[in-house]
Nucleic acid binder design. Structure first.
Lengths: 210, 210
DNA sequence: TAAGTTTCTGACTAACTGGTTAACAATTAA
DNA sequence: TTAATTGTTAACCAGTTAGTCAGAAACTTA
């Protein structure tokens, strides 16, 4: 009975192994899909025997569930929140910057999330229905307030959020395509800054904020 | 020896069965992924015995390949081309409209394409490297020309194309999420028009064209 | 040290999967 | 009609996969 708040040596080895497995599993799930990622392939990538994987997670579905949760936690932490007092320009800039940095730093997190949604979001219907819908409503309300105050152009706030999400996540999810088209092997730090500048520029101007 | 340009009754039954299989397969591949979609599940959806599926396509990989090709053909037809003489405003409007309509009409096509790219585009590396890179270069050149002529704001043309792609495809790939957030069961015709208007408006203004 | 607990692992199995085959049915062509 | 081609299908098989299990090893605690 290793409860969550007990921190013992045994707890550490458990947590460490689980994290190692989660990271290996995430990569496998992204590369091969849920069914294509076998427990054996996850084990190989984590450099552990297969039976060990199933000692820490009772089955494959459990691993996937844990990977998803781990991804969502990371996501929420990375985005932070908006200060209503800072006005629309800074708010949009901050969201764009945070999301672009996340996309370039953790493309796999974005990818596994994207695949889950594309396939119908069977494992996180609740997440979208409760937490995410709430988040969008709050932010949309804020934008609407700024619009009513004449602080930005009259654009649909919900679709504006979709636009920011799609444009920023694109660099993670479609990195293969983007790199190929740009004839590059990898992204560099200056690409990140360029994308932030580009998207901020065009979206802010699109919202009448420049 | 049923050659492609021969149109016989036997050719018709073949083409009909193959199309039925392709449509069933596309849905299965989207819902379950490549590995998760079994030949049996495709057969069930197509309402044909499994052996019949493997009579028309010699193996599973072949089916997937055919689904991808069918998708890309549809895509290319749907986008059409830009007339360089029409100026940046009409050009961007037309691309946005075409892509948004495609996304709402054929979300599965967009989804299967997205999944393929996310997973590393193993089956269409060549497509991106040749055809798509060419397309982007051509269009980027056109935009750059308009920028140099002072006909639109100085935004990076390649990233502009990425922005348009991501923003429009988002409505197909993430339809589940979007519907949930908007608390809707399905999209309606007026949603399509609203998205076209929204994206045109914000992106055109972002490009200094309004 | 001894007992108890956690970690580790090879070997096994039941279920499933892609693909084959062989026989049969329907259609077409001569 | 007859022969050939095309379409249809059940039954089968070899390989793979998730998950089990029993026992060994390592570590913790008293």
């Amino acid at each position: 009975m290793t409860s969550a708040n007990q921190v013992k040596k045994t707890g550490n080895i458990r947590a460490k192994s689980q994290m190692k497995i989660l990271i290996a599993a995430r990569t496998e799930f992204v590369l091969q899909g849920y069914r294509g990622a076998t427990v054996q392939s996850i084990a190989d990538r984590a450099e552990l025997p297969k039976a060990n994987i199933l000692y820490y997670f009772k089955n494959k579905d459990n691993i996937y569930q844990a990977v998803l949760e781990h991804t969502l936690e990371m996501w929420d932490e990375g985005i932070g929140d908006i200060d209503p007092n800072q006005g629309p320009k800074v708010a949009i800039e901050k969201i764009i910057e945070a999301k672009v940095r996340m996309s370039f730093r953790h493309p796999e997190a974005s990818k596994i999330y994207a695949m889950e949604i594309i396939q119908g979001a069977q494992h996180l219907k609740d997440y979208a229905r409760t937490y995410q819908r709430q988040w969008v409503r709050e932010k949309a309300k804020l934008f609407q307030h700024w619009i009513d105050n004449g602080e930005m152009a009259n654009v649909d706030p919900v679709h504006l959020i979709f636009l920011i999400w799609s444009a920023t996540q694109h660099y993670a999810d479609f990195e293969t395509q983007i790199l190929t088209i740009m004839n590059r092997a990898d992204f560099e730090e200056e690409d990140v800054e360029k994308v932030i500048a580009f998207l901020s520029d065009i979206i802010l101007r699109g919202c009448g904020l420049i």
